[in-house]
Computed example of a mutant assay.
Amino acid sequence: MTIEGMNHFTVVSNDLERSKAFYMNILGLKEGYRPPFAFPGAWLYADNQAILHIMAGKPMPLNATGVIDHMAFTATNLQATVDCLKLHGIQFDLHRLKGLEIWQLFCHDPDGAKVELDFPASEPEPKS
């Protein structure tokens, strides 16, 4: 077996529309085809790849399973992202990764999943 890349992440949501709004309106993913599963949800795409699956309609786990700490996306347009997060009152932490100098921005989705956005080192520091 050879791993060729990441296929998708799945998050569980208390409120499907709120989660879709975050990932689509804030992070710019697009909703696309999703097979007709017996439970509500959405598949969100970057270009033609479904990279985030949202599952809804079942209770949130009381004790989260697994050890995944966060999901990370490659992104562009740091200033517009910072402006959008501020506009929506979403707190974030932004810093440069020492050694690579890329910008790393961390925030949380509406259900508490940690999201990392990695921006090219060539992008200027955002203005307040």
Rank of each mutant, 00 (worst) to 15 (best):
L16I: 05
E101S: 12
N25G: 08
T76Y: 04
M55W: 04
F9V: 14
M71K: 01
M71H: 08
G28S: 08
L87N: 05
G99Y: 12
F73D: 01
A72N: 09
L78S: 03
N14F: 00
A50D: 04
G5N: 07
G28N: 10
K20T: 11
I54M: 05
E123W: 06
D69F: 08
Y33P: 01
L105E: 08
N14R: 15
L52T: 14
A38P: 00
G66S: 04
A64I: 14
H53F: 10
A42R: 10
N7S: 14
L29G: 07
T2W: 01
Y45N: 04
G112A: 11
C84T: 15
G99H: 08
T10I: 06
S128M: 05
S122F: 01
A121I: 01
H95W: 07
K86L: 13
L94G: 07
K30A: 12
L44W: 06
E31N: 04
M60Q: 14
A75W: 06
Q79M: 02
M55R: 14
P110R: 07
L105S: 09
L27K: 06
L87M: 03
D69E: 13
I54D: 10
A50G: 15
S122Q: 08
M1T: 12
E125K: 11
C84G: 02
G41Y: 08
E116R: 06
N7H: 15
L27N: 06
G32P: 05
R34A: 02
K58Q: 15
P35R: 13
L87H: 12
P40A: 11
A64C: 00
G41C: 02
L97R: 12
L27R: 06
G28H: 11
L105Y: 10
G5D: 03
E116I: 04
L27S: 06
A72I: 04
S128I: 13
L85Q: 09
N7C: 03
P110D: 09
E31H: 06
A75I: 08
R18V: 13
Q79S: 06
M71Y: 11
G89C: 03
Q49I: 13
P61G: 08
L52C: 11
S19W: 01
